[in-house]
Design a protein around this nucleic acid. Sequence first.
DNA 1: TGAAGCTAGTTTCAACTGAAACTGTTGCAA
DNA 2: TTGCAACAGTTTCAGTTGAAACTAGCTTCA
Lengths: 169, 169
Amino acid sequence: MASPRRKRSDTEPSSTGTAKLHLTRFLPYRVSVLSNVVSHTVAKLYDKRFGITIPEWRIIAVLGSGETLSAGEIAQRTAMDKVQVSRAISRMLDSALILRESGDTDRRKALLTLTPKALEIYAEIVPLALAYEAQLTSALTEEEATQLDRLLIKLQAQADQLAATPNTP
Amino acid sequence: MASPRRKRSDTEPSSTGTAKLHLTRFLPYRVSVLSNVVSHTVAKLYDKRFGITIPEWRIIAVLGSGETLSAGEIAQRTAMDKVQVSRAISRMLDSALILRESGDTDRRKALLTLTPKALEIYAEIVPLALAYEAQLTSALTEEEATQLDRLLIKLQAQADQLAATPNTP
DNA sequence: TGAAGCTAGTTTCAACTGAAACTGTTGCAA
DNA sequence: TTGCAACAGTTTCAGTTGAAACTAGCTTCA
């Protein structure tokens, strides 16, 4: 493998002082494009066969083990905001995918459980989802898959931290 | 490093026939969450200081070198659809960030160029964008960054192919 | 107690989105 | 030529989104 003397960076300070940027090498752009294609493909999978959206699928995914959670807990685990969760839940109530009963100790918290119908969907979707994931990673070696796992964890941690930082003054 | 005997997969065929899935280990979900955080952070960067959206920024990015492109070419290079591009352009015309003149040879194609004002924004944003990218990858070693690059390319290629495949019959 | 301030979840509003329909332009073929 | 399919870009429509305001229930502490 030829190894370039120095990693060719996007930065090109150039005598004029104007740095250049190639979108196709810009990490945020690349991640966004990848995410779009993947989400779109996966959404088609869910929607076509079961008529559910990604937020609904995520809720089914976290409740799929039979657990009972509040809307807030679902929001945390699915990385969605509470508005999104609220709306997905109301759709799922309409389509009888979820049961809601208010808690005894705290009546603000609604306890949410999947209906048998939703559990069936879960049981059907999971293999499809995993099959897609397997196909996606089939282009990688076992070692690369492990690397990917580690890199994603690191990037996510760093992205979270940078997002939390108010603003580089 | 302890190496697990076998990669612990999400699949859990289990005697009942119901596979399980942990959202937090599901690649499409992970990529989506990462993309959201990153995009959100970056959008704040653009929006706060320059009042532009991500589509507008992308257009500025591809035209930033001074090139003249048609809307269709912009759509291709930015991975946005033509509707998104059309709308971004009309906003940019309003805010005097872009110039449009119809081509001589084909009057359907509008030739688009950035105004000096937009070029200034470009010159200001690029360092900020690159700084963010640098911070994001600062958690990685040089080698890891190279791996990431390779993995993203592979994943994108595979995702594109799977998206193109009509439907696994 | 009970006023003030949390927290959980919902609603509202204005902006954004994608798919499909549409307008105008070009190229090709009869 | 004219007629028609293909193409570039725009508009429409119906739905989705996120931020902020709001309602309702809980907690604290004077």
